[in-house]
Amino acid sequence: MSQSPHPPVVLIIAGNDPSGGAGVTADTQAVSALGCHPAPVITALTVQDTLNAYRVEVSDPDLVAEQAATVLDDLPVAAVKLGLLGNAEVGEAVAGVLESHPELPVVLDPVLVAAGGARLAEENLIDCLKQRLMPLSTVLTPNASEARSLAPNARDPAARAEYLRGLGSDWVLHKGADEDTPDVDNFLFGPDGQREDFRWERLPGQYHGSGCTLASAIAARLAHGDDPPLAVQHAQHWTWLALSRGWRLGKGQYIPNRLGGQ
């Protein structure tokens, strides 16, 4: 029996959200919708709904590392997406695995706080992100709040991105959905002063899992061979469409409709 060419594989390292709005469900839906095969590694179990998060149980770091290493030994991984890591111990374990695969593009979504305001990661993760994971990342995707936490002394998106790129990230996509602006302004900063500005119509309501969706879409496009600027452009457009057709399935935020095609 003949087989069709296999899809690119995206290794997803993130936490589980039982509402299905964010976390590995958002990641696997986005990666699958964009023609890739998701390989999910679970870093944490959360008690969470479309309103907020209430509890986080972080996985054993060795178990996380074993999951990731086993996938990398078996499957032809083309890109990696990092989401909720929970604490520095898990972050260190993930870094240890990825350091053996420097050829892989890595999208790092520095998840620190839930959309409802609950803290999802321990404070010690911030130093691990800066010291171990940003040097391994191809694209870093902080929202404005996360960027302020990671670069507290920088006063604007350009200064924050310069600081974060100085820590090792090749590209920084500074997202503005959580800012009080008429439209959503995202800024991509890269090597040699490269910068691209993106403006998206601000949709009504709030969305649960939009950051996970966008970061995973970028990883999927990198897995298909796009360079980072093109991957970011395509992923933002696809994510905006997913948000625009989103559902309010629960009592809180809308959930992006990642199943509506490309």
Rank of each mutant, 00 (worst) to 15 (best):
A242Q: 11
P204T: 00
S244A: 12
W171L: 06
N153M: 09
L173C: 05
L167D: 02
G168Q: 00
S149Q: 15
C212E: 12
E201V: 15
T239M: 15
T239L: 05
P182A: 10
V172F: 02
A147T: 07
E196F: 14
P204G: 10
G168M: 05
A158Q: 14
W200L: 15
G250R: 11
L150A: 10
L164Q: 07
D226Y: 03
A217P: 02
R245G: 06
G209F: 06
Q206T: 15
E201W: 08
P157A: 02
G190C: 08
K251V: 12
N153C: 09
D178Y: 00
D178V: 12
Q206D: 14
G205Y: 03
Q236E: 11
L214F: 13
R148I: 04
A177I: 11
G176L: 13
L241A: 14
C212Q: 12
H234G: 02
A154L: 07
A158L: 13
L203P: 03
D178M: 09
A217I: 01
G176F: 09
D197G: 04
A151Y: 04
P182H: 06
S216E: 03
A177W: 15
T181K: 09
H234M: 06
A177Y: 13
L243V: 12
P204N: 12
T181N: 08
W240G: 00
E196R: 14
W200C: 11
P204V: 04
R160C: 10
G252M: 13
G209Y: 02
R199H: 05
L188S: 04
A242V: 11
L173K: 06
T213Q: 01
K175T: 13
A231E: 05
D197I: 09
L167N: 01
L167T: 00
A147S: 15
L222S: 02
D178R: 14
E146V: 10
S169H: 04
R160M: 04
D170P: 00
Q253C: 01
G193D: 03
R160W: 06
E179Q: 15
I218T: 03
I255D: 00
S216K: 05
G225A: 02
D192Q: 14
D226G: 06
A215S: 14
W171G: 09
S210F: 07
Y207N: 05
Q236Y: 03
A223H: 01
G246T: 03
S210W: 00
T181R: 10
Q194N: 12
A220L: 02
A217F: 03
I255Y: 05
A231C: 02
Q194Y: 15
Q236P: 01
S169M: 03
Q233P: 00
Q233S: 14
A161G: 03
L164A: 00
R258A: 12
S149N: 09
P256M: 13
A154I: 07
L150E: 07
